[in-house]
Design a protein around this nucleic acid. Structure first.
Ligand code: NAD
Ligand code: NAD
Lengths: 219, 219
DNA sequence: AGGAGTTTGTGAACGGGAGAACAAAACGAG
DNA sequence: CTCGTTTTGTTCTCCCGTTCACAAACTCCT
């Protein structure tokens, strides 16, 4: 194999591409499990549900990891994407709010297998204290600072009711958490250097409802 | 109040705008609960976490529902957006796969309050049968067709393991479901007229990890 | 009534992403 | 070694979405 182009690590990858890299990663893992050792951009694009030209352009931002006339080495490409995203190492994660959703998240095995490790489950309700969810003891929310410091946690997950979410976010930010995944239906305000991503189930359903309504109207 | 412009209902609203309308709707509901009866585009934009110019342009696709020099009537605008999205009526929804996540979804009260009604919980595992989650009895997956027909269900939620998701989707489509919200980490293939939206927790975390890694690198 | 002050609705400029299309590179056959 | 085949990496074009900036419209005050 000849020398691969591997651009300097300070280039910036378009946000739209970053959002798709995890999808490619998953598709490559699936291919790998099926025993496929090589694949073309077309095959991978189908597996990931995207256009093959778009896939190739996305990959070109990372470097030149394919072989013309042949395709991509599944394992090699998978490693390169994982390295680019940063999931070759394990990210410690803390989950706050161990209600319906928090418990489901804690029990989710896809966490561990994709580069994330739940180091603590926190809840403000004393009644939940010492409950064990997914093999992890639920602790007092006040332990947040200690845990973040001890495990060097950068990523926090918020699964509390909406009214508590901003408070929790503020506390997280104060402790040094710089990335937040928020499930509460509220717009969090945080300092600029902190990344927030929101997952909102009812927004997704409402988008479906809109299209559903239009289908019904034109039918 | 003078005549409002209300464009013919068959214009097409940009997808990016559709995705934000539910956010505006939620912000308006919050304002309404706080007793605010009127708001400017700037206030609403702050509450929704977007740029005010973008907000105004988004709203302009629906019609001209504001008053220059004054702002928007909260209740009126809220109703108009709800009508546009289609959540003035109730949408019946069926959830398939009542495991960790499915149970959390079934217990989620935000469903009902935002225009959706869970009409059935289905699971393939006979051990779950007759369990009652959130006041609804878990039924056999084979009841899908009957339920979809009886309640005229258009929207289905998939919370099964990845391996089962495509099968479930196929069955849903065969029954007449035309919108699917998929939580399984897999790319579903469905006929063109069926809408699929995907919620993928680990993708969200991986995107955060990417940015986190970059922060660490430049620090 | 008129003018000052506000805020909407939208035209226009701009930037980024999507997809088509193709040149460059690798490989295999003869 | 040369030619044909395959598939990548990249350029170019187009389109969508964002943002600016301002005229139009409305209120309030004098
Ligand atoms: N359940 C779902 O499927 C679902 C879906 C979409 C969004 N959500 C959102 O996710 C959030 C959690 O939903 P849920 O159904 O798990 O609610 P829940 O009421 O079951 O759980 C919330 C948990 O947060 C804890 N909590 C409250 N205040 C806290 C604080 N200040 N600090 C730490 N912990 C605190 C509570 O003790 C409770 O255990 C809500 O904002 C909800 O709107 C839930
Ligand atoms: N738990 C989470 O927080 C979480 C987060 C993100 C994504 N997910 C994804 O959501 C899905 C569900 O996760 P979970 O943790 O609830 O899993 P789970 O194993 O707890 O539940 C899955 C349920 O689906 C049922 N099921 C299996 N095959 C079925 C079929 N063919 N028809 C109907 N029902 C069937 C099972 O009986 C089980 O009750 C998985 O694909 C998972 O990857 C879960």
């Amino acid at each position: 194999m000849s020398a691969r182009t591997s651009p300097d690590s300070s280039r910036d990858i378009p946000e739209a591409t970053v959002a798709r890299l995890p999808i490619y990663l998953r598709a490559l893992t699936t291919l790998s499990e099926q025993g496929t050792s090589t694949c073309s951009s077309e095959e991978l694009a189908v597996a990931a549900g995207v256009n093959s030209a778009k896939l190739r352009k996305d990959l070109s931002y990372l470097g030149s990891y394919g072989t013309r006339g042949v395709g991509y080495d599944v394992e090699y490409l998978r490693y390169q994407i994982a390295r680019e995203i940063g999931v070759t190492q394990d990210w410690p994660v803390v989950i706050v709010g161990i209600g319906n959703l928090g418990q489901a998240l804690a029990n989710y095995s896809g966490f561990r297998s994709r580069g994330f490790r739940v180091v603590a489950l926190l809840d403000a309700d004393p009644a939940r204290r010492d409950e064990v969810v997914a093999g992890i003891e639920v602790q007092a929310f006040d332990n947040l600072e200690q845990i973040v410091k001890d495990h060097d946690v950068a990523i926090g997950v918020i699964a509390t009711p909406a009214v508590a979410a901003q408070d929790v976010a503020d506390r997280m930010v104060a402790c040094g958490v710089t990335s937040i995944l928020n499930f509460a239906p509220i717009v969090l305000s945080v300092p600029e250097q902190v990344d927030v991503r929101k997952v909102d189930l009812s927004i997704e359903l409402q988008i479906l409802a809109y299209h559903e309504q239009r289908k019904a109207a034109t039918a």
